[in-house]
């Protein structure tokens, strides 16, 4: 071993140079990629909103996506961080989109829910973020799960405040307003039901005011 390495000050200098180099490298990479990552996140959000308002976004590229959004959608902040989006067509609103947000089993679950002109029925639903168990709870973010909510009644009658839509254990659903949960992911299903009920309460109140 050389003299240099036995010196006490040498490791300090080495670590300083190493961290300085790696930190600069990472800062450079971040500066290069972060605009792209931000765009990805924003586009994913727009794509989700467009999809559940009834627009097929598969063949639309990002720049067109933003154009369509700006042209046909309006948004209102209901409370800090909670936005309602409306899809307008010929001066009429044809879809109302609300954010879904709450706790799952391991972390937050986020998504969007849309109602059509018929305000007591769900038009569509999408889950965009979850941290549930891969292969089990994480299935809530697959279309085969959230497509089950299409056309379900939120309240029994247009002006009622009673929420009838429920996520139940698979095989225990008894009526049309109940949706099968995920087998093997009872906790996620339960929490998702809670999250959905909370959001639906808010949505029902908001739609009452909207008329």
């Amino acid at each position: 071993m050389s003299k240099r390495k036995k010196n006490n000050i040498y490791p300090l200098i080495f670590v300083f140079i190493l961290t300085f180099t790696t930190a600069s490298l990472l800062m450079g990479v971040q500066a290069w990629l972060s605009p792209r990552i931000k765009t990805n996140k924003k586009m994913e959000k727009l794509r989700s909103i467009l999809t559940i308002s009834g627009i097929d976004t598969d063949k639309i590229n990002n720049s067109e996506l933003e154009k369509i959004f700006n042209k046909t959608f309006s948004k209102t902040e209901l409370k800090p961080g909670f936005w309602r989006y409306q899809r307008n067509s010929q001066n009429k609103t044809i879809a109302y989109i609300y954010p879904l947000q709450g706790k799952g089993l391991w972390g937050p679950v986020k998504g969007f829910l849309s109602t059509g002109p018929k305000k007591w029925k769900i038009k569509d639903l999408i889950i965009t973020y979850q941290e549930e168990t891969p292969g089990l709870g994480a299935e809530i973010a697959t279309s085969s799960f959230y497509q089950k909510f299409r056309g379900k009644k939120i309240t029994p009658k247009p002006d009622s405040s009673k929420i009838v839509l429920q996520v139940k254990k698979e095989g225990q659903t008894r009526n049309k307003n109940e949706v099968d949960g995920i087998t093997g992911a009872t906790q996620t299903s339960k929490r998702f039901n809670q999250l959905l009920t909370n959001s639906l309460k808010m949505i029902v109140e908001d739609r009452k005011e909207l008329k």
Binding site: P11, F14, V15, V29, L33, I37
Partner: peptide, 27 residues
């Protein structure tokens, strides 16, 4: 690499590459 701090050095190097890969994947 000084012998007594070689493990932490290796960790820093690995972490740097992992973060870069993660960012590339996100982008």
């Amino acid at each position: 690499i000084p012998r007594n701090i070689r493990l932490i050095t290796e960790m820093i190097i690995i972490a740097t590459f992992v973060i870069i890969f993660d960012q590339l994947l996100k982008a």
